[in-house]
């Protein structure tokens, strides 16, 4: 059941990415190009997704526990630390160069564009390296939450 529902959740997410245009780097880069060929569509993606999740979360949190797990595992960190801001800044630069964030990079993979086939393995290396650097604790400030 966990496998089936995991698959269905991913499928719905992926259909949303493709239908919304978020899986198309050209559309993402145009959204980020305020001074040029600006395409505001992605604001509608973020708006539709966030409002739906805002309402839906409050409905499912009425349950004592999720359907197929013991507890709701919700991030509790509150500190705005250097790690959060540095990481988000680097992510934004990569997003602006490639037009892919992690979800669309996965949904684009079956189309086998050369750019995607380079981007995705590089992203996995980056995720691995980032987890390793984070483990060293160099960028942590005191009381940093993870």
């Amino acid at each position: 059941m966990r496998i089936l529902w995991g698959f269905l959740s991913g499928l719905v997410f992926g259909l949303g990415l493709v239908i919304s245009g978020m899986a198309n780097p050209a559309k993402v880069l145009n959204f980020l190009d305020l001074a040029g060929s600006w395409d505001p569509s992605l604001a509608f993606v973020m708006g539709g997704a966030t409002v739906t999740a805002f309402i839906g979360y409050r409905l499912v949190w009425r349950r004592r526990a999720p359907v197929l797990d013991q507890t709701f595992d919700i991030p509790t960190g509150r500190s705005i630390d250097r790690l959060l801001v540095t990481g988000a800044a680097l992510f934004g630069i990569g997003w602006g160069i490639g037009g892919f964030c992690p979800g669309p990079a996965w949904t684009a993979l079956p189309l086998l564009a050369p750019g995607t086939l380079i981007f995705l393995p590089a992203m996995l290396v980056g995720l691995w390296a980032g987890a390793w650097i984070k483990g060293l604790g160099l960028l942590n400030t005191k009381g940093a939450a993870t």
Partner: peptide, 28 residues
């Protein structure tokens, strides 16, 4: 779908996206 064709740029982009989301604990 139109994916950028500069492969060096895509490699750098992928590394930055992976590194940044790991350090920053999340993405879009």
């Amino acid at each position: 779908q139109t994916v950028p064709q500069n492969l060096l740029a895509m490699a750098i982009a992928g590394l930055l996206v992976g590194l940044g989301t790991a350090l920053g604990s999340g993405c879009t």
